[in-house]
Amino acid sequence: MNESSTPREAPRGKTIGEPLISARGVDKFFGDFQALKNIDLDIHRGEVVALIGASGSGKSTLCRCLNRLETITSGEITIDGERLPEEGRDLTRLRADVGMVFQSFNLFPHLKAIDNVTLGPRKVRGVPRAEADQQARELLERVGLSDKENSLPTALSGGQQQRVAIARALAMKPKAMLFDEPTSALDPEVINEVLDVMTELAEQGMTMLVVTHEMGFARHVCDRVVYMDEGEIVEQGEPEEFFTAPRSERAKAFLSKILAH
C-alpha cells in the first residue's frame, strides 16, 4: 500500500498530538503469573497498529486491558486523555468509545443481525429505533451483508458473523477499534472477507489495534508492528523494517518460525 491511498491523520512514522490510547507502566498478574510487564504503548489517531507475538505472549491480554475487560495490576491506561476508571458509569462511557471485535465473534444469538447492531445505539446512546435501524442497514451494507439483516447468528457463516460483529462495534461510532485475533477462529477461505473489511476501515482512517497472526495484513495494512514476547513489548517499528530487518534476537526467532514456509 502506498502513502497516497492512506489519507490518515498520522501517516507512517509520524505522531501528531496526544495519543488516543496510551498505556504507561502497565503490569498485569494472573495469580503469580505476570502476563504483562511494564507495558508502554501509545496509539495515535488514525494509526493502525498490529500486535503480534506467539501464543501466551500477552498480546490478547493487553488488548483486553485497553478497554478494561481485564483489570490491570498497576500502571495507567488513558483513552483520549481520560484515565480508564476501575468501574462505574465513566468506564461504561469510555468503553462505548472503543469498539471491540473478538476472536469468537460473540454475537448475541437471540438477536437478529440487525438487532445485534442496533442494541448498543438504542440502549446506550438512546437512538430511536427507526434511526438505529437505518444506520445499521448502512453498516451491514458496508460489510457486505445487507441481505442478512434478519438472519439469526446461527444462520450465518463464521466470516459473516465476524462482519456483523464489526458492524456492531462500528454502530457505536467508536474513536478506536480493538481487534482480538479477529480471524483466528475462521476457516481459511473466509479470512479474506474479514480482512478486506478491516483494510477498508484502515483506509478510511479508523484508529485500530489488531492482535493478529495474519502477517500479510500486519505488513501491508498496518502502520506499525508491535512485537510481544513473555508479557513484554520486545520491539516495535514500521512493518517493512520489522519484517525484513528485525533488531531483536527474539523477533528474529519468531519470524523465522512463522515465515519459514
Binding site: L69, F102, L107, G120, A169
Partner: peptide, 12 residues
Amino acid sequence: GHAEAARSIGLG
C-alpha cells in the same frame, strides 16, 4: 464472551 461483548458496546 457474550457479556464481554455487551460491556464492550457500553452496556452496564
